[in-house]
Design a protein around this nucleic acid. Structure first.
Lengths: 291, 291
DNA sequence: CTGTTAGCGCTTTCAC
DNA sequence: GTGAAAGCGCTAACAG
């Protein structure tokens, strides 16, 4: 081959801005490099962390993030249908609080409820609750109440970790401090406050920071100062927004989660997932920070 | 054709879960239905609103949202490169605060600075500032300060609307109340507060709610109550989070924006954009709400 | 080492 | 009416 013609081709490539068509490549390779991400969590503000971490990791592996939102099983299945016709190599479903019963080869369930499938990544809520209680007990809070909405699906796990921490600290278990099946967290809080003289609770575990921010003003309205009288602990993340004081929380590393997911997607061996539970980090408020 | 064989085929389709391969279809039609969305805003929490509205509208038109994040011109161009090799029919760049100089046929710039291209949708900041000032003046606030970070790129527009409102209300313009080129909004605020006895300002326009939540505690630290002493107004959206009191704001309808974008994408005529500026709604805090 | 060919899964066209 | 064939843009495997 003449060097001249080689250069001529390269020059033409340059000048005509030739870009090999990835669709034609995909047709042959039977893989598009697209990963569908179906966000099913009810609080869409929580998706940002997931998406940012996921996109960062996916693009590093030449993969594309195809985003969908879905709020019910029907919507998830519909989205799944549209994405698995050759468009996406794999699909993630994130944060579904309704049972899905999906056990497809190429679908990974992340932080979903009612998971029987092995293709899933779950947060270790038992570990979170245990850490939370141990922290609170070390802070001198021995009467820890728990308010967890019915829908969270991590009820048993949270209770497990809660009891484990109490046992390890030789503390008695009081059923009246636990509100796991309440439809409204506000009602649960009212019951707690109405019985506060006998219950005498000084710490409160809630499902997430959003919940905490709803509950804290209610506590204050009943002359309970936070965290002096009642220390409120979020079992899933803090918001880190200006104007909102930090509360102690368990925070799950979105980066760690994304790394695991991408490892699974690229290696396609179940062992890549390692354990399929992810443990969160304990975040304690900066005492020197804002009041 | 025999009816029996027709049914046999349909039955086989059903049983084998046959799904026509969209990639093969794309190769022929030269269109994938994928719309690349490059989020370039520094505050990733702002992306959620865009993404949710966009995905909703796109999926209604059988289009897919391919998400990327980019924080610099280099990253945006790199993402653009990867998406325009046949994968995406069109690409949106959202919220870039750095000049891009892109005027590609299939790229729409949304809420980006320094836009010369006609393929863009901008927020009407002049209109926002004018509405804000008119509202504040009607609330009895005639000394309106403005703090706007340099990077926002809407400086002239905001000043335009500000002056227009003042003129229409026969109020004098005071240059000392305007901080448009300050690197730090905190420094600008300090200058304002140091001169507060002579300036006597009773309202403050800030770029967005995030900024407002940074500034409000600083005002309170100087014994300025909000909104009694100083009414803080956000020129771009409010957060609507529990635990954060609502402040008056201009809020842009993500739904309206998404609808316009999808109209442009589907009709592919510039007229579909209508005007390429989008005006925001005035949001006033619910006085009956939290303190 | 270079050049040709077949075929990825589909749709459109053209011939029967 | 139904059925065969061409071709979308690319890369594999093959033949020269």
């Amino acid at each position: 081959m003449k060097e001249a013609s080689r250069l001529a081709v390269l020059k033409a490539v340059e000048e005509l801005h030739y870009r090999p068509n990835v669709i034609a490549q995909s047709l042959l390779s039977q893989s598009t490099g697209c990963i569908g991400v179906i966000c099913a969590q009810d609080n869409i503000n929580q998706t940002t962390g997931y998406l940012y971490a996921l996109e960062k990791h996916l693009s590093q592996h030449q993969k594309h993030l195809l985003l969908r939102f879905a709020n019910s099983k029907t919507e998830v299945l519909h989205a799944l249908d549209e994405l698995t016709c050759g468009l996406c190599d794999d699909v993630l479903v994130i944060g579904a609080r309704f049972p899905l019963n999906i056990s497809h080869e190429n679908v990974i369930l992340v932080d979903c409820v009612d998971v029987d499938s092995s293709n899933s990544i779950q947060f270790d809520h038992a570990f979170a609750a245990e850490t939370a209680c141990n922290y609170l007990i070390k802070q001198g809070r021995r009467q820890i109440a728990v308010i967890n909405p019915d829908s969270c699906g991590s009820v048993e796990q949270i209770l497990l970790g809660y009891k484990r921490a109490l046992e390890n600290n030789f503390l008695p278990f009081n059923r009246n401090l636990i509100f796991m099946d309440s439809t409204s967290s506000s009602v649960a809080l009212q019951v707690l406050l109405n019985n506060s003289t006998t219950l005498n609770f000084n710490a409160l575990l809630v499902a997430d920071e959003q919940e905490a921010q709803r509950i804290i003003p209610q506590l204050q309205a009943f002359n309970k100062s936070v965290p002096q009288d009642i220390m409120v602990f979020s079992l899933a993340g803090s918001l880190h927004l200006p104007g909102i004081p930090t509360i102690p929380a368990i925070e799950y590393s979105m980066d760690a989660m994304a790394a695991r997911i991408v490892a699974w997607l690229t290696e396609k061996t179940k062992s890549a997932l390692g354990s399929n539970v992810l443990r969160g980090d304990l975040i304690i408020p900066d005492m020197a920070g804002r009041k």
